[in-house]
Lab assay of single mutants.
Amino acid sequence: TLFEALYDYEARTEDDLSFHKGEKFQILNSSEGDWWEARSLTTGETGYIPSIYLAPV
């Protein structure tokens, strides 16, 4: 399942991933609670993103 960003997000740590509204992600690991490891389909970068900023596509 792909997810789309509902809002912009600016990374706060080196493990976080910055993204823009409308960016799409492949989720790599969603077992860490509210922060999911994801790969951006726009940039190819991976990192942790807040799941509350996402909606399934």
Results as ranks from 00 to 15, higher is better:
Lys24Pro: 03
Glu45Phe: 11
Leu41Met: 11
Asp34Phe: 13
Gly47Lys: 03
Glu45Asn: 13
Trp35Met: 12
Glu32Ile: 11
Trp35Ser: 07
Leu54Gly: 01
Tyr48His: 08
Gly22Thr: 03
Glu32Met: 14
Ala38Pro: 00
Arg39Tyr: 12
Thr13His: 15
Trp36Tyr: 06
Thr46Ser: 09
Trp35Tyr: 13
Ala11Ile: 02
Asn29Pro: 05
Glu23Met: 06
Ser51Gly: 07
Arg12His: 10
Gly47Met: 06
Arg12Asn: 10
Gly47Cys: 03
Ile49His: 00
Phe19His: 01
Tyr7Met: 13
Ile52Arg: 14
Glu14Thr: 12
Tyr7Val: 12
Thr42Asn: 09
Phe3Ala: 04
Ser30Ala: 12
Arg12Ser: 12
Ala11Arg: 09
Ala5Gln: 00
Leu54Cys: 04
Ala11Thr: 06
Leu6Pro: 00
Ala55Pro: 01
Ala5Glu: 00
Arg39Val: 14
Pro50Gln: 14
Gln26Ser: 08
Tyr53Arg: 03
Lys21Ser: 06
Lys21His: 05
Phe25Gly: 00
Ser31Phe: 10
Pro56Glu: 09
Thr1Arg: 12
Leu54Asp: 00
Tyr53Phe: 11
Gly33Ser: 14
Tyr53Cys: 08
Thr42Trp: 12
Leu17Lys: 03
Asp15Thr: 12
His20Asp: 06
Ser18Gly: 08
Ile52Val: 12
Asn29Asp: 14
Leu28Gly: 02
Thr1Phe: 12
Asp8Trp: 05
Gln26Gly: 02
Asp15Phe: 15
Leu41Pro: 03
Ser30Thr: 13
Ile27Asn: 01
Asn29Gly: 10
Leu54Ile: 09
Ala38Met: 07
Ser40Asn: 12
Glu37Ser: 07
Thr1Pro: 12
Ser31Gln: 12
Ile27Gly: 01
Ile27Ala: 02
Glu14Gln: 12
Ala38His: 01
Asp34Pro: 09
Tyr9Arg: 05
Glu23Gln: 07
Gly47Glu: 01
Tyr53Glu: 01
Thr43Val: 01
Ser40Tyr: 02
Arg39Lys: 15
Thr13Lys: 14
Ala5Trp: 01
Ser31Ala: 11
Trp35Cys: 07
Pro50His: 15
Gly47Arg: 03
Lys21Ile: 08
Ser31Thr: 13
Trp35Pro: 08
Leu6Glu: 04
Leu2Gln: 06
Ala5Ser: 06
Phe19Cys: 06
Leu41Trp: 06
Leu28Pro: 02
Phe3Pro: 00
Thr43Met: 01
Asn29Gln: 08
Trp35His: 08
Glu4Tyr: 15
Ser51Ala: 15
Leu6Ser: 04
Pro56Arg: 06
Asp16Ala: 15
Ser31Pro: 10
Glu10Lys: 11
Leu17Trp: 06
Gly22Leu: 03
Leu41Gly: 03
Val57Asn: 04
Gln26Ile: 15
Thr13Leu: 10
Asp34Gly: 11
Gly47Tyr: 07
Glu10Thr: 13
Gln26Cys: 10
Ala11His: 06
Trp36Phe: 06
Pro50Asn: 15
Leu17Ile: 12
Val57Asp: 06
Tyr53Leu: 13
Ile49Arg: 00
Phe3Glu: 00
Ala38Asn: 00
Lys24Asp: 01
Arg12Gly: 09
Leu41Asn: 05
Ser30Phe: 15
Thr46Gly: 03
Leu6Val: 08
Thr1His: 13
Ala5Leu: 05
Ser18Glu: 03
Pro50Val: 05
Phe3Asp: 00
Asp34Leu: 11
Tyr53Gln: 04
Leu41Phe: 08
Asp15Ser: 15
Trp35Lys: 11
Ala38Glu: 01
Asp34Cys: 10
Ser51Phe: 09
Ser18Ile: 02
Ser18Thr: 09
Phe25Val: 01
Glu45Leu: 15
Thr13Phe: 15
Asn29Trp: 07
Asp34Trp: 11
Arg39Glu: 08
Asp34His: 09
Gln26Tyr: 15
Leu2Lys: 05
Leu28Thr: 06
Gly22Glu: 02
Pro50Ala: 09
Val57Phe: 10
Glu10Ser: 10
Leu54Asn: 00
Ala38Gln: 01
Thr46Arg: 10
Glu37Pro: 04
Glu14Pro: 12
His20Val: 14
Lys21Gly: 04
Glu4Met: 13
Leu2Tyr: 11
Ser18Asp: 05
Ile52Tyr: 12
Asp16Asn: 13
Phe25Met: 03
Tyr48Ala: 06
Tyr48Thr: 07
Val57Trp: 10
Ala55Glu: 08
Glu37Ile: 14
Ala5Thr: 03
Ile49Leu: 07
Ser18Tyr: 02
Glu45Cys: 09
Trp36Ala: 02
Thr13Pro: 05
Tyr9Gln: 02
Ser51Gln: 08
Ile52Pro: 06
Asn29Arg: 07
Thr42Phe: 10
Lys21Met: 08
Tyr9Glu: 01
Asp15Gly: 15
Asp15Asn: 15
Glu32Arg: 14
Glu45Val: 11
Thr43Gln: 02
Asp34Asn: 08
Leu6Gln: 07
Ala5Arg: 00
Ala38Thr: 02
Ser31Glu: 11
Glu37Lys: 11
Pro56His: 06
Thr42Asp: 11
